[in-house]
């Protein structure tokens, strides 16, 4: 599956997208990412699966695109 990162999260991950497989749901995805990128633990963001924001743990398929979107404040 494809994971997209936006705004300040690309500074933490170092890239704007990752391809990951074998992750079953969004909780497992977050756990994996936070272990790999510790600074993600204190970042604020919402998660969208296939361009729809989620409000609870959501199962993931290989064909899914997941987005992690942080807030921006510049103007």
């Amino acid at each position: 599956m494809k994971i997209l990162f936006f705004g300040s999260l690309t500074d933490i991950i170092g890239v704007a997208d990752l391809c990951l497989n074998g992750i079953t749901d969004t909780d497992a995805l977050q756990q994996f990412l936070k272990a790999q990128y510790p600074m993600l633990s204190s970042a604020k963001y919402f998660i969208a699966v296939n361009q729809k924001m989620i409000s609870a743990n959501t199962p993931l398929k290989t064909s899914d695109t997941v987005a992690l979107m942080p807030p921006f404040s510049g103007g």
Binding site: L4, F46, A48, Q51, K52, M53, I54, A67
Partner: peptide, 8 residues
């Protein structure tokens, strides 16, 4: 990129 939002 457009995301449909919901109330958490």
């Amino acid at each position: 990129y457009e995301i449909e939002m919901v109330k958490i």
